[in-house]
Computed example of a mutant assay.
Amino acid sequence: MSTLEIVVLALIQGLTEFLPISSSAHLILPSVLLGWQDQGLAFDLVLNIGTLAAVLIYFRKEVFSMSTAWVTSVKTKQQTQDSKLAWWIIWATVPAAAIGFFGKDLIETYLRSGHVIAFSTLIFGLLLWWADSQAKQIKTEYQSGLKGAMIIGFAQVLALIPGTSRSGITITAGLMLGLTRNAAARFSFLLSIPIISLAAGYDLLKFILSDLHVDWAGLLLGAGVSFLSAILCIHLFLILLNKVGMLPFVIYRLILAAVLFYVLF
């Protein structure tokens, strides 16, 4: 890949991974409109590492508090607010991790197409609008409960459908459960940590077992761009969320879906 392709794709990944607008819908556009080739396994791996590092660093205080509280809860069997949230996130990760692992080949064979992405971008964008417009916004992420966390976790399974948006569908579920916009977003971001870690670990294993030629300079550039764009995106999104709501992202998804329909159909 050229330097321009690396920077553009890394920017797309970093900016769209945590916004409710679908990274897969955006990553298909360069190949469809510009004829760019698939970025490949190694590049997917470093983009995941870059976005993972961004969310870990941004939420470092929360991650540290939850991790230490979780370890303590395992030893003492006593739960705190942070340990409960950690357990909820762990259990909420199981559905998408299991279905993603066992159904990955089927998903890539039958669902990874521009037509699926166009429809899911539209449908789940409208669902996000409905959830946001009806949201009671009375709970924090610490009040979601195990049942609520599992509902969000099963919603995350739908993100295996390209074009759905992992952050979009989990925030949608959180709003439906009565979480505030900020709480739904924070829960979604914290929930991304284990699932992105698992995806990166899976790609790393495949990379180790493969015999690929690696452009290390290009990979480092991609990781750095995805990291910087992702951490900036998280910061601005959480600042603007309560001011602008979800409507601008819904409108953007509808426009994107219209572009995809026009180009692909």
Score class of each variant (00 low, 15 high):
2 S>T: 15
29 L>G: 01
27 L>Y: 03
55 V>H: 00
97 A>P: 01
20 P>G: 02
120 S>Y: 01
21 I>Q: 06
148 G>H: 02
179 L>A: 03
205 L>Y: 15
142 Y>T: 13
65 S>V: 09
265 F>V: 14
21 I>T: 11
221 L>S: 01
83 S>V: 04
225 V>A: 04
194 P>K: 10
11 L>A: 15
212 L>C: 07
104 K>R: 14
221 L>N: 08
175 L>Y: 05
216 W>N: 10
165 S>A: 03
86 A>C: 06
22 S>T: 01
118 A>D: 08
252 Y>G: 02
101 F>H: 11
86 A>H: 04
8 V>G: 07
134 Q>G: 03
212 L>F: 05
232 L>A: 14
173 A>C: 10
168 G>V: 01
173 A>Q: 06
166 R>K: 02
237 F>Y: 12
234 I>V: 12
230 A>N: 09
182 N>P: 08
235 H>A: 11
60 R>V: 04
19 L>D: 06
149 A>P: 00
233 C>E: 02
147 K>S: 11
193 I>G: 09
99 I>N: 00
258 A>L: 14
172 T>P: 07
135 A>G: 01
201 G>V: 05
187 F>P: 03
99 I>V: 15
172 T>F: 09
227 F>H: 02
155 A>P: 00
102 F>W: 14
213 H>G: 11
242 N>Y: 05
221 L>T: 11
60 R>K: 13
92 A>N: 10
7 V>D: 09
206 K>R: 14
10 A>F: 03
25 A>K: 08
40 G>W: 07
73 S>Y: 06
161 I>C: 05
149 A>Y: 02
94 V>H: 07
174 G>T: 04
77 K>V: 05
236 L>K: 11
176 M>C: 13
22 S>D: 09
17 E>C: 02
30 P>E: 07
90 I>G: 11
117 I>E: 00
25 A>Y: 00
122 L>E: 01
134 Q>M: 13
248 P>T: 07
199 A>E: 05
40 G>P: 04
152 I>R: 05
